[in-house]
Structure formats: C-alpha cells, structure tokens
C-alpha cells in the first residue's frame, strides 16, 4: 500500500516527503512535538491571543502605515533646533499635532507605570 503511494509520487514530491519526515523526526526527538501538542489547548491559545490582541496593539497596528510613512519623510540629516528655534517650531500646526500625540502617549505611559509600581 505505502509502496504504491510512493510509486505515484514524482521525484520532487518524494524528495520533499523525505525532508519533511526528517524534519518531523528531529522535532520529535527534541520533544517539540510533545510540547506543541500540550500547548495547543484553548486556554493557552486564549491567553496568548488576549496578550497579542488588545486595545494597545490593535491601535498600534492600525497606525503602523502612518508611522512608517512619516518616518520615511524625515530628512536624512534633520537640522539642529535650539531653544529659540524650538519656540518658533511650536507655532507650526504639524509640530503641534505631533507634540500633542507624544504628550498623550507619555501621559498614558506614566499612568500605566504608576499602576504597575503601586
């Protein structure tokens, strides 16, 4: 039966099959198959999912393209800004918006840290 199946496989397929078996044997010898088997429980998957899928990560991922796009637009050598220059820059609406975002981020980071340490 098994030999019949093997006969019907092309050379490429036999090769892929051999490699897969070899890989599986290694996984088995190292105990990875057993470990994976035990990990595949609804509780573990649920715990892992809620760690990865939460309000913060979903918001972050939602903004990834905006963040990456704006990173790409930062000039290679941004000009230096001194204290007085900074005051001038603060009048720029784009800078204001960016600063607002950073401050909101700092505030919630501070809040999260406070509750972590108290």
């Amino acid at each position: 039966m098994a030999s019949k199946v093997l006969e019907e496989l092309s050379e490429n397929e036999t090769d892929a099959l051999k490699k897969t078996l070899c890989f599986l044997m290694k996984l088995n010898e190292m105990g990875i198959l057993d470990t994976l088997n035990h990990l595949l429980e609804p509780e573990v998957i649920g715990g892992l999912s809620s760690l990865i899928l939460n309000k913060g990560t979903l918001k972050l991922l939602d903004n990834v393209d905006t963040l990456l796009k704006s990173l790409g637009e930062v000039p290679k050598e941004p000009k230096e800004v001194g204290v007085f220059g900074l005051l001038g820059e603060l009048r720029d609406p784009d800078v204001k918006r960016g600063l607002g975002f950073v401050i909101a981020l700092l505030r919630s980071l501070g809040k999260a840290l406070k509750s972590n340490f108290s």
Partner: peptide, 12 residues
C-alpha cells in the same frame, strides 16, 4: 481553535 482568538479580538 478559533473561539478564543475571536474572543480576544471582541474583548479588545
């Protein structure tokens, strides 16, 4: 398999 994953998404 999918129930816990969706549940995490719906909660978030």
């Amino acid at each position: 398999l999918w129930e816990p994953i969706f549940k995490a998404y719906f909660e978030a």
